[in-house]
């Protein structure tokens, strides 16, 4: 409930920002995994291979991964992406508009949004042991319909 409100808040703010960064409404019908990351965050490095695998394996079932980069300096993000290639969408938000609206409290933080556009869960941090539970949550949402 609280999380849904947060999402609504982020949508209205997005509209004010031109909605250019992330248009979640257009992704209705898909399961969206929004991940906030930064080049300087150590666990973020560990999350990238897993997100690549998720996009490869579950993309056909309707999973969309959107990684929101919050680096102030764009070249830091590019450097990171050269070392850790991403096979999913990356949105650049150097001014921290999206994490502010989503209420991100640490790096990384991810939000799992169901096909109806509701935020179903928030996950703070990323550890190797988080991979299986997160994968399971995504699968459950993908097959909820």
């Amino acid at each position: 409930m609280l999380l849904s409100l947060l999402l609504l808040a982020s949508r209205s703010a997005l509209a004010a920002n031109g909605g250019q960064l992330l248009d979640l409404a257009a992704l209705k019908g898909q399961v969206v995994y929004v991940d906030f990351w930064a080049s300087w965050c150590a666990p973020c490095r560990e999350s990238f291979p897993w997100m690549n695998r998720m996009q490869d394996e579950l993309g056909r079932d309707g999973l969309v991964i959107i990684a929101v980069n919050v680096d102030h300096d764009h070249s830091d993000a590019e450097h990171f992406l050269r070392e850790h290639p991403a096979r999913f969408r990356v949105v650049f938000d150097p001014d921290g508009v999206l994490p502010g609206q989503f209420g991100v409290r640490g790096m990384p933080t991810s939000f799992l949004i169901d096909r109806d556009g509701r935020v179903q869960s928030r996950h703070a941090g990323f550890r190797l042991t988080d991979r299986d539970p997160l994968t399971q949550q995504i699968r459950v949402l993908l097959h909820a319909h």
Binding site: F36, A38, S39, W40, C41, V70, D71, H72, D73, D76, G96, P99, G100, V104, R105, G106, M107, T109
Partner: peptide, 11 residues
């Protein structure tokens, strides 16, 4: 600072 403003602190 905000969690996404830690690039210098993370050096």
């Amino acid at each position: 600072v905000k969690p996404w403003q830690r690039e210098i602190l993370a050096r």
